[in-house]
Amino acid sequence: MNRPNKYPPLNLPAADLRLRNSGPRPEVWDTLRRKWLVLTPEEWVRQHFIRFLTGTYGIDPFRIVQEQQLRIDGFSLRADIVVYSRQAEPQLIVECKAAGVAITQEVFNQVAHYNIQLGVPYLVVTNGLQHYCCEIDHEARSYRFIHEIPQL
């Protein structure tokens, strides 16, 4: 199946996604979770970004967790992508938005909120077109934007 019309090309390397039509909405095969998922605009971005992490940065797929369950202030939340080190320490949180969703302060606040529990050194927000990566200095309680995701 070719790229569905409502899913734009992204500012990421091409990803060889397995797509199918099975009912009213297209589905994508998630190679990490080994199941078919409804292909939402956000899932389109997430699947491409995972291929970017594994292909461009060489991150072992076994170190990537999708929709990581978090419990913060009594609320059940889910981080889109969490990358762990080889020592099973969380290193990077990625918040994915659909291509049509603007990257705003609210999106940064969302991913920073997830970091309350995980305490990672790097945060990424992306809508597939724009990507921002921040390095967190937990001791100084500050951050700085960096141009690339570091080797993890």
Rank of each mutant, 00 (worst) to 15 (best):
V65E: 15
Q69R: 09
E106S: 05
N115F: 00
R144L: 08
L39R: 05
V107A: 14
A14S: 08
D30H: 02
P26H: 13
C96P: 00
V82F: 09
V124H: 05
Q151V: 11
R3N: 14
I93A: 05
E135W: 00
L152G: 07
Y7E: 10
I103S: 05
V107E: 15
L77V: 03
R144N: 05
E139H: 02
P26G: 03
I50V: 15
F52N: 15
R78K: 07
I64A: 07
A79N: 08
Y84R: 06
A15R: 02
V38I: 12
L77D: 06
E95W: 14
Y7W: 12
T104V: 06
L10T: 02
A112V: 03
R86F: 08
E27K: 14
E42R: 07
R20V: 04
H48R: 06
F52C: 04
R33I: 05
I59N: 05
V65W: 02
H138G: 01
R144Q: 14
G128Y: 11
A112G: 13
L77G: 01
G58S: 06
V107I: 15
N115L: 03
Y114A: 02
F62K: 13
F145D: 07
H138R: 11
E43R: 02
E139Y: 02
N109R: 11
T126N: 06
C96Q: 08
F145G: 03
S142A: 10
Q117C: 01
K35D: 09
L32F: 06
I146E: 08
S85I: 08
Q91F: 05
G74V: 04
P24T: 13
E67R: 02
G74S: 01
A14K: 07
Q69E: 13
R144H: 11
Q91C: 03
L152R: 07
S76Y: 07
D137T: 00
Q68S: 06
Q130M: 02
V94S: 04
Y132T: 02
R34L: 05
P13S: 07
I146G: 03
V111A: 09
V83E: 14
T126G: 01
P8D: 14
Q68I: 00
R63I: 03
R78N: 09
T40H: 04
V125N: 12
E43N: 03
L77S: 00
W44E: 07
C134M: 15
A15T: 12
G74Q: 08
Q91A: 07
H147D: 15
V45I: 13
A99R: 08
A112H: 09
R63P: 00
H113Y: 12
S76E: 15
S22Y: 13
V111H: 06
Y57G: 00
P41M: 13
Y84H: 12
R51A: 13
M1W: 01
E106R: 06
L53I: 09
A14N: 10
V94M: 05
Q117L: 07
G119I: 12
N11S: 11
Q68H: 10
P26S: 09
Y122C: 02
R20T: 13
E67F: 01
R33T: 08
V82D: 11
V38T: 09
E148N: 11
E67Y: 12
V38H: 01
P121C: 02
D80P: 00
E148W: 12
P13T: 07
A140R: 15
L118T: 01
Q87V: 04
I64L: 05
E139S: 02
E106M: 01
A102L: 10
L17C: 04
I50W: 03
E95H: 05
Y84F: 15
C133S: 06
L39G: 02
V45E: 11
